[in-house]
């Protein structure tokens, strides 16, 4: 069965278990092009596993994953690695920078792996670091940076090769509130301006209205919120509200940020 044509990423009935303990139990999800989808749920609800399944890092035991109307779950390891390298970006909850490379070399790593020239990679990486306000740290090692700066370098690394889909697995987990808002704003603004589809997982989306107006949670920046509970999708009453509110003033403010 072919995926619906307007979904860039589409999964149906995904099951996955870690050594017998179930993590995902039949999750289905569709993500349209250019959409920012927030994936929420408590710790252990399967957010990270779902992102890993969708990005082809692990193969689901049952179910299907399609990207741009092509199956991912039937691809071999090398083909999935190519897909991740060329079409996907990944941001982890910790920056995971290579400590012996400078900030710009870290950010340019995907381009270098693509085989671009040293100078072109440096130019692209520096321009992304400038856009994310860490241009002055480009020649420093990760040891010399603050955690928020490191996380922004990780964001630059995920965006530098202009991926089709960006997977962000709790990108603000180690940050303070003010840094969270900055990183999320930078991330969503960059994604909107380049038409990048984003899947943003976070466990701390507070679903009351007051918290959503502050974009520190990330929920305010998302078009849609998908909630997972114990490896299954759960429908919350706030779900439709978030979709309706996405064109509200906060979302517009995020879109209008110049990057």
């Amino acid at each position: 069965m072919a995926a619906p044509p307007d979904d860039v990423l589409w999964a149906r009935g995904v099951h996955y278990a870690y050594d017998g303990s179930p993590a995902l139990q039949g999750v289905s999800i569709g993500v349209r092009e250019g959409e920012i989808v927030a994936l929420t749920g408590p710790r252990g609800s399967g957010k990270t596993t779902l992102l890993r399944c969708l990005s082809g890092q692990v193969l689901p035991e049952q179910g299907e994953v399609w990207f741009n109307s092509a199956p991912v779950h039937t691809l071999g390891r090398a083909a999935r690695e190519r897909l991740r390298l060329h079409r996907f970006g990944w941001i982890d909850s910790s920056p995971r920078l290579v400590p012996e490379l400078t900030a710009w070399e870290n950010a340019a790593l995907p381009l270098l792996l693509h085989g671009s020239g040293y100078r072109a990679a440096r130019r692209a990486a520096r321009s992304w670091l400038d856009r994310l306000d860490v241009g002055d740290c480009a020649s420093k090692r990760p040891d010399a940076l603050r955690q928020a700066q490191r996380q922004r370098v990780a964001v630059a690394r995920a965006l530098v090769h202009s991926p089709t889909v960006l997977f962000a697995d709790e990108p603000t987990a180690p940050l303070h509130q003010s840094d969270r808002a900055q990183v999320l704003r930078a991330l969503s603004a960059a994604a909107r301006s380049h038409g990048i589809t984003v899947l943003l997982a976070s466990h701390d989306f507070t679903l009351d209205q007051a918290a959503r107006t502050s974009d520190a949670t990330g929920a305010a920046l998302a078009d849609r919120i998908v909630t997972l509970t114990d490896g299954r999708r759960s429908r919350t009453p706030a779900h439709s509200g978030a979709a309706a509110r996405s064109a509200g003033p906060e979302g517009a403010a995020a879109c209008s940020l110049s990057v």
Binding site: S94, P95, R96, L97, P99, D143, R150, P174
Partner: peptide
């Protein structure tokens, strides 16, 4: 200094 930035403990 392995994963000095990668390890959550050291980075924290």
């Amino acid at each position: 200094a392995a994963g000095a930035a990668a390890e959550p403990g050291t980075s924290a």
